[in-house]
Design a protein around this nucleic acid. Structure first.
Length: 330
DNA sequence: AACCATATCAACCGCAGGCGT
DNA sequence: GACGCCTGCGGTTGATATGGT
């Protein structure tokens, strides 16, 4: 049984709004408010639009104090940092940027910011001539691709996180020459984050919780999370309110489980189908991220999720090994 | 000038969850 | 608790603009 449509689709106008419709909607809401019922609004106003469409138009365009375009560097930083921390929760991100709408931020991220930070991905066919590019389009999340389990969002965040981490906190066993070259914007972002008034400003600590036992300057952490597994944005406290921090904390707990499950599945898959880890990681190579740095990040990420559990280590023969964690991330 | 590819952004769609009954 | 309605959200689409050949 399907759900009832929100409006009579045959009798509603679609497509771009005319200035007349805008004026009607604006005038009506300014005079009467929404009345708590968007569905009934178009009828009251006498325009042939779906209530959802009216709501969207008002929220994204007609509402007072809406800013369009011209994102500042500070806004870029906030969007990027929050995206790394909480993913595509555009409404939460928008709540931190007065005058910006979730739709605007989503568009900005998808069309500009992501490309600036991640750089254009190489076409898969460059490494896999037989590949028709579908694997790229579905983000590698479909069953048939060579990295079948890690979601595109997770990969994106992973990559962003790694790129930031690599410049801030290069791991001793990572060859710096293998680390990806950063876009000037990325470098600028690092500088901005460093300049924030907080004891530890490394990118890897973007996600520190506002905990009383916050680590000191000397305890450089190799992973983004704390020993209790919480990945909480702090970047900070300077521009993110505490309720958001709590939301992020909840979300991150959920994401840790999800990403760990994805990674476990990936590794299982690797063990079962005989495909080499090198093959599995080809798509990561596409992202200009070295395998070594990726695996280092994963190891550290996992170990910080649960310091008592065994984690997977990647050795240089390209084999995952299950081994008990021998050190603490504290 | 014409054509094609790519970028941008407004708008649409379907789903999930909140809320009232 | 079950149900239906409504809102809000995130992903996607499609029209238009812009740039390159």
């Amino acid at each position: 049984m399907g759900r009832a449509p929100c409006c009579d689709k045959a009798n509603v106008k679609k497509g771009p709004w005319s200035p007349e419709e805008d004026a009607k909607l604006k005038a009506y809401i300014e005079k009467h408010g929404t009345g708590g019922n968007w569905i009934a609004l178009p009828q009251k106003m006498g325009i042939k639009r779906c209530g959802k469409s009216c709501r969207l138009r008002w929220l994204n365009y007609l509402r007072p104090n809406i800013k369009h375009g011209g994102f500042t560097e500070e806004e870029d930083n906030i969007i990027c940092s929050l995206y790394i921390s909480i993913g595509s929760r555009w409404s939460i991100i928008a709540a931190q940027l007065p005058g910006r709408t979730d739709n605007d931020i989503k568009n900005y991220w998808n069309t500009k910011l992501k490309k600036k930070l991640l750089g254009r991905r190489k076409h898969p066919s460059r490494n896999h001539p037989k590949d028709d590019g579908k694997a790229d389009q579905d983000g590698g999340s479909s069953g048939g691709s060579y990295l079948p389990t890690l979601s595109s969002s997770a990969l994106e965040r992973l990559q962003l996180h790694m790129q930031l981490q690599s410049i801030q906190n290069p791991l001793p066993f990572c060859n710096p020459a293998l680390l990806p070259k950063l876009h000037p914007l990325q470098e600028k972002m690092i500088q901005n984050l460093q300049s924030l008034d907080n004891p530890i400003k490394t990118s890897t600590n973007l996600l520190l919780p506002p905990s009383p036992q916050k680590t000191g300057h000397d305890s450089i952490k190799c992973g983004p999370a704390t020993s209790d597994g919480s990945m909480v944005f702090n970047g900070g406290s300077d521009f993110i309110d505490s309720s958001l921090s709590a939301k992020i904390s909840d979300y991150n707990a959920e994401m840790q489980m999800q990403m760990q499950a994805e990674l476990n599945e990936l590794i299982l898959n690797n063990n079962n189908n005989g495909q080499s880890a090198d093959d599995q990681l080809d798509c990561l190579r596409d992202m200009d991220v070295s395998k070594e740095s990726m695996m280092s990040w994963w190891c550290n990420e996992l170990s910080s999720w649960d310091s008592t559990a065994s984690v997977f280590q990647y050795d240089h023969q390209g084999v995952f090994q299950d081994f008990p964690l021998g050190y603490s991330m504290k």
